[in-house]
Design a protein around this nucleic acid. Sequence first.
DNA 1: CGACGGGACGC
DNA 2: CGACGGGACGC
Length: 473
Amino acid sequence: MEDYSAKPAIENLDDPPNSRLFVVASRSVTEDELRNGFCSFGDIQGVWVVKDKQTKESKGICYVKFSKSSQACLAMEEMHGKVLVDGTKPIKVFIAQSRSSGRHRDVEDEELTRIFVMIPKTFSEDDLKDTFKEYGDIEYCVIIKNKSTGESKGLGYVRYYKPSQAAHAIENCDKSYRAILAEPRTKQSNNEEYSGGGAPRVEYASGVAGGGVDSMNQYGFQMAPADPGNYQVMDYRSGEFSRCLMVSTRAALTQEQLFALFDLIPGMNYCELQRDSYGMSKGHALIRYNNYGSAVYAKEKLNGFEFPPGNRLQVNFVDDGEDHSSSVSRMASQFVAAQMFSTAYNGPSSSQVMKHPSYSSAPQMSRIQTNVSLPSLKKLAPPDSRSKERLFVVFNPAPLPVDILEDVFCRFGSLIEVHLVPGRTVGYMKYADKKCADDAMAALHGQVVNGVKMKVMLADPPREESHKRARTY
DNA sequence: CGACGGGACGC
DNA sequence: CGACGGGACGC
């Protein structure tokens, strides 16, 4: 572009792919005006107005290069049809064709809104949607299945409404999904499946990112982001609360797992899995706290919580045979709930202990529950550090959330990143320093954290990068 | 005792 | 309709 000092090779003009805009504007529009009009959408790497070789007059076509495809797409979505300079014609904005592809058709939204991903075979289309909705409004999700058996092939398509959303997903989703733009279907089929096929997409959906607000939508005990409104919604005057909770679970959970989970809230003094006469779990457990606020809070946080992932716990109050409608107990429960909530809400995002300075009778609540004596928190090594050692970790029964794992595994120093294998119960811990990895392994192998047992081993070296297809986004 | 990769839609 | 310039690091 116009920055000669960093002149990109021709083949880099579209690196990353779809990060360059083709703009049709009035011949009077200057590069500065373009830069001004587009700079709010991202990092502009270059602006170029194409001019006639001889006369040096603008031909009314321009290129704007962004550093990311999502920025270019957003700029396109927002600026197409806008008047850039008063009194000039509205501009047209498209993703530029890559310079090597000798095409002469506009790049259509159809080609920019559907991504192709690799997913665990256990994923349902709803799982797929849940995973990718954080990047934008999804029109539909499809999983490729064996036509006779109906079993998933571990591949899926996600159609977004906007190119910027698909780009956002490709840029930000976990690398293991290997998200790329889907090649358009070979023929334009005439059927009306998904209502996307034939008709050109004219207008984008109006809503902002699909606001499915499940505060518990990913497994992991998410303390921080809970919606403050939840607390006002709770009706403390109804008398519909107590210190006792009944947990119902369809999946077989051990008493230890339930204990670890509900003991995250301070004040638990009883946890018993109900068994039948053969000692088999009946799928119910009784929990009791020593105060109303903890029980209220536990129900609020853990009802609907998925543990293990895919198994929603149901948590309800059960009668503890006490009169808790008095103003004293009401105030007490409100007080504790508010205390705990504000601590959780304002508290350190990845720290080990939550202190309750003005409520001394509450034990300290840790989001990490383990017998291991953990060193203090350490900083993560920069993401671009060279990995010197990788640990392979097997979780039982289910993987711990990434933020918890970071919290635990960082404490031995030089942790670069935590990587969970989607759909499996295993993960990798990348360390920049071999000794740190060895220390972590020695301290954590065979240990239990938040009710999850871990095997911590040295990872086999990754298989050599073979003939990998270039990503086409 | 678990493992990273890989890849395409009934025309 | 509306598709691809100008000019040089440092061996």
